[in-house]
Design a protein around this nucleic acid. Structure first.
Lengths: 102, 102
DNA sequence: TGGCAATATGTCCGTTTAGACATATGCTCT
DNA sequence: AGAGCATATGTCTAAACGGACATATTGCCA
């Protein structure tokens, strides 16, 4: 993982480090988180592309604006399941999903 | 969705119907579930390919045999998150994941 | 047939995540 | 500046999901 990517992860609060304790991510964890960030970034991009507000998307998926914001922010307390449901609701196809992930 | 696919979903307990109540899946829900089933099938295939038992895989991902069985059975009470973590632990690459999903 | 390893099914209970709400911050107009 | 909309952040409680355990069930081979 290059330092740019690492920074991107750290900036989102995924890697919490202080002088006493440093959480080292295993390779699988890092890959999982990267995947999740790809999904959240794509969600935001797709929503903006369709000119939908967070409030509107929230209604579409039966959720709330705050949760949508957290999804797009890559908050650790958001599951891939929820991200996928949102993307599917926006009409993203399997092929597009595949591209996002790969 | 063709009837074959529908049968496959129903057989897993996703569609619970009786004479009074019939749960109709929305298009998004169906697509989400199909995605999940693809992942669980791939998980089982990959595990078998690597000649790993459910007990062994459970240890690898810090879980239990029963949960691995549920993952592979496409149990609704298993998240995509968990399936992804298992697949990643087995060394499945992003490209392979993309193929599974698409 | 019985024994054994692998897998399936069902339940329990602690933890995590969900939506909801309140509130803060930011952005764009006029 | 301030009104108005969009987004961000933080917290609450109920619901969903997690691992663990117990207990079937299956399949294989001696």
């Amino acid at each position: 993982m290059d330092s740019k990517k690492k920074k991107r992860l750290e900036a989102r609060g995924w890697v919490v480090g202080d002088t006493r304790e440093f959480l080292r991510l295993t390779a699988e964890e890092a890959r999982y988180i990267e995947l999740k960030l790809s999904l959240s970034e794509s969600l935001k991009a797709e929503r903006l592309k369709q000119q939908v507000t967070q409030v509107e998307l929230a209604k579409m998926i039966g959720s709330s604006q705050s949760r949508v914001a957290k999804m797009e922010a890559g908050d650790p307390a958001v599951t891939v399941d929820l991200l996928l449901k949102a993307l599917l609701t926006l009409g993203v196809t399997k092929k597009q999903l595949a591209k996002i992930i790969a």
